[in-house]
Amino acid sequence: MDNLIKICGLSTPETLEVALDAGADMVGFTRIPRSPRHVSLDLAHRLSLQARGRTQRVVLLLNPGDEDIAQAVEAINPDLIQLHGSETPERVAEIRAMVKRPVMKALGIAEASDLQALTAYAGADRILLDAKPPRTAGALPGGNGIAFDWRLLNGLDPRLSFMLSGGLNPDNVAEAIRLTKPQAVDVSSGVESGPGLKDPARIEAFIRAARTAFAAAHH
């Protein structure tokens, strides 16, 4: 299975173009109003058209209602829905049946016991392992720039396919890939110069470093 690199939280045509030109396998558009990476349905629609046929398009939703999902699917026509809230396995299955397209479930990891949820969400098409958000008021569900202890994944079944997220950046992604052997990696704040401000040079550096590390892992 191919190793994938996802650049999430893109919100301008210019930075999206950088990610596309650099070879991002997936691009993510955030629909979480309190996030600095939130995009309106109109902007998300335009960005999605720009990326169509060039990469996989992902929409990031947080505990969405049916109407939220319907609007996002109509505007963005995503290849994948990413659920980043406290959605239950039942709700994930319900959304998957409703949208008739793949669903990725994000799970927050802080300690070994958090990995027990993996079994419950086996019905999701993809699993994203992210750092659990800090317990502070207004903390975002992701994109906080913090990593969890990657050694927690040492005992995982090596056949398990997952996407690694949380605190990744151009400087540490190679080490993360070497230690955890993910099928895919996901970055948002790690390629920014400020909250929500994607940095073209960091996007290019991240994709280059991840691609090199995946190639090394196969040898």
Rank of each mutant, 00 (worst) to 15 (best):
I203C: 02
P78W: 09
Q183A: 15
I7R: 02
D171K: 07
P200L: 06
A122R: 12
P158N: 12
D199P: 02
E67P: 01
L156V: 07
L20D: 00
T119L: 03
A124V: 11
G167H: 12
A117E: 12
A205T: 02
P89H: 09
H38F: 07
L179F: 02
G166D: 12
A75Y: 11
A209D: 04
A201L: 11
L4N: 04
T212D: 04
A124R: 03
V103Q: 13
E14C: 08
V27D: 08
A72M: 12
A210G: 05
A210D: 00
E204H: 04
L168G: 01
I203E: 02
E14N: 13
E94S: 06
N77K: 11
L156T: 02
R52L: 02
R57L: 11
S40C: 09
L49M: 12
T88D: 13
T15D: 10
L153V: 07
P36L: 12
L115F: 03
G166C: 14
Q71A: 06
K132S: 11
D186I: 08
T55S: 12
D25Q: 10
S86F: 09
L4W: 05
L83W: 02
R52P: 03
D2V: 14
H45N: 13
I177T: 02
H219G: 15
R126T: 09
L62P: 00
I7C: 07
L168K: 01
L10T: 10
C8Y: 09
T136H: 15
D2I: 15
A72W: 09
L80E: 06
E90F: 06
K198E: 06
I109F: 07
R37M: 08
